[in-house]
C-alpha cells in the first residue's frame, strides 16, 4: 500500500469495524440484556453465560475494546473536520450526516461512562455482573434518561452507519437501492432501539 493511500485504508477499516464487529456486538449486547424482561434469574443466567465464555478477556479486547477505540479516535477526528451546513442545505441526508456525527460523540461519552460504571467496577472487584447492578444504576431517574439517550444515540449511529457502510463499500449504488436501504435501516433502528429501551424500563421500573 502506497503511503499516500493510508487515509483510504483507515477510512475503509473504520467503516468495516463500525458494522463488524461493533454493530453486531451492540445488537447482541442489547439482545442478551433483554433477558432481564423475563426476570432477574433469566438475566443473571444469560449475563453469566456471556461473562463465562472461554477466553472472555481476549474476546473483549479484540471484538469490543480495540475496534471501538479505533472507531472512536478516527470518528472524533472525522466529526470535527466536517463543517456542518444544515442551515443552508436542510436536506434529509445532510441532517443524517450531521446527526451521525452528533450521536457518535454522545455515544462515545455514554460508552466511557457505561464501561467505567460496569465493566471496570466488576474488574476491580467492586461489583458483580448481575441484575441488581443495573437495577441500582437505573432506578436513579437521571441515569435512566442518560442511558436512554445513550442507547438511542448508539442505535441511531449504528443504523445510519449501516446505510453509509452500504454506500462506502459500493453495495448500494443506485438512488433506488439507497432509498430501500433507508427503509431497511429505519427498521433496524426501531427494532434494536426497542430491545434496549424495553430493557431499561425493566431495570428502572421493574415492569
Amino acid at each position: 500500500m502506497a503511503d499516500q493511500q493510508r487515509e483510504f485504508f483507515y477510512r475503509r477499516l473504520h467503516s468495516l469495524l463500525g458494522v463488524v464487529p461493533i454493530g453486531l456486538f451492540l445488537t447482541q449486547h442489547l439482545f442478551v440484556n433483554h433477558f432481564a424482561v423475563y426476570g432477574e434469574e433469566s438475566f443473571n443466567k444469560a449475563a453469566g453465560f456471556m461473562a463465562e465464555l472461554p477466553f472472555v478477556i481476549l474476546l473483549e479486547i479484540f471484538v469490543i475494546y480495540l475496534p471501538i477505540l479505533y472507531h472512536a479516535v478516527l470518528g472524533v477526528y472525522i466529526a470535527f473536520t466536517a463543517k456542518n451546513n444544515t442551515s443552508r442545505f436542510s436536506y434529509f441526508r445532510n441532517w443524517m450526516f450531521r446527526l451521525q456525527r452528533i450521536t457518535g460523540i454522545i455515544t462515545l461519552i455514554f460508552i466511557v461512562w457505561h464501561v467505567w460504571e460496569t465493566r471496570v467496577q466488576v474488574g476491580l472487584g467492586n461489583a458483580e455482573v448481575e441484575y441488581s447492578l443495573m437495577e441500582n444504576i437505573l432506578t436513579n431517574p437521571f441515569m435512566f434518561w442518560f442511558y436512554l439517550v445513550g442507547i438511542i444515540s448508539a442505535v441511531f449511529h449504528f443504523a445510519n452507519g449501516l446505510w453509509s457502510f452500504l454506500v462506502s463499500w459500493g453495495i448500494t449504488q443506485s438512488p433506488k437501492s439507497q432509498k430501500v436501504a433507508t427503509y431497511a435501516v429505519v427498521l433496524v433502528f426501531l427494532v434494536v432501539s426497542y430491545l434496549g429501551v424495553r430493557t431499561l424500563i425493566q431495570f428502572a421500573y421493574g415492569v
Binding site: 499516500q4 493511500q5 472525522i78 451546513n85 441526508r93 445532510n94 451521525q100
Partner: peptide
C-alpha cells in the same frame, strides 16, 4: 490517495445542488 473518494461523508448535498443534474452520489 489522501483526500480522495474516502473523504465523502454521504451528506448527498452535491446531487441536490448540481445545476446540471449529474448523478454525483451514484
Amino acid at each position: 490517495e489522501d483526500g480522495g473518494v474516502s473523504g465523502c461523508g454521504n451528506s448527498q448535498n452535491c446531487v441536490q445542488v448540481c445545476p446540471k443534474g449529474i448523478p454525483l452520489t451514484t
